[in-house]
């Protein structure tokens, strides 16, 4: 176990939603710590709280009770604008349906977080070009999302997520919309980024292939950690 301070921690986190008169308790005292360099999957049945946990980790929402810290920062102490800045600077996202901006090229999409950070265009070009090469889509840099396959789009999304070197990259079912071969290649890339650059990944998934390729599997049941296993990967 590493001694580095955690990049992400949940301490007694609960999250309650109200759907009309119905109260939905998505998380019921979640405790979880993710350290730098980890490659972790959160698994569990539908309604177990995976997505809610990921949203809280991504500073997209705030807990009802308990504390969520990203890179040591308690989300409850931040305003909406500060949370936006935290997402921009410290968190990368890979979404199930890629969610690339259709009017931007692959290169521009990958560079979008750097642009939001105000990184000079020349530096953006250099960093993103090498990243796209590393992900095997260097020759597709000028293509728009609608000119790319699903797997290529997800690689662009991964490039966008890691380009700004965030503390943690959150993936919401990153292999759900691609075929098996593409999923395997994406998982290769994720592992490669994790091993070569020490990028921390927290992936929410139902996909057995993902569970086999990560090093830690956290199983949620009814909004709590049911098991937390270190696996071979």
């Amino acid at each position: 176990m590493t001694t580095s301070p955690p990049v992400l921690s949940f301490e007694g986190v609960t999250k309650v939603f109200h759907q009309g008169d119905v109260e939905v308790r998505a998380l019921r005292g979640l405790d979880l710590v993710v350290h730098p360099g980890e490659l972790t999957a959160i698994v569990g049945p539908s309604g177990s709280g995976k997505s809610t946990a990921l949203h809280l980790a991504g500073a997209l929402d705030v807990p009802t009770t308990g504390t969520v810290r990203v890179d040591g920062v308690d989300l409850a102490t931040l305003t909406a604008r500060e949370r936006a800045a935290l997402r921009r600077d410290r968190i990368g996202f890979v979404f199930q349906s890629y969610n690339l901006v259709p009017v931007m090229s692959a290169h521009e999409n990958a560079a979008s977080v750097l642009a939001l950070q105000g990184v000079p265009e020349a530096e953006q070009r250099t960093r993103v070009a090498s990243l796209l090469e590393e992900l095997g889509i260097g020759d597709l840099a000028d293509r728009r999302p609608d000119q790319l396959s699903g797997g290529q789009q997800q690689r662009v999304a991964i490039a966008r997520a890691v380009a700004a070197r965030p503390a943690v990259v959150l993936g919401d079912e990153p292999t759900a919309n691609v075929d098996s071969a593409t999923a395997e290649r994406l998982l290769d890339l994720i592992r490669s980024l994790n091993e070569r650059h020490g990028t921390t990944f927290l992936l929410s998934t139902h996909d057995e292939r993902v569970m086999k390729r990560v090093r830690r599997v956290v199983t949620l049941v009814d909004g709590k950690v049911a098991s937390d296993e270190t696996v071979g990967g």
Binding site: G58, R81, A84, R87, R88, D89, V113
Partner: peptide
Amino acid sequence: VRELGVMKALGMGPWA
């Protein structure tokens, strides 16, 4: 809406 949500998730501020 969804696209704007993604851009905000990536860190685009309300003013932007």
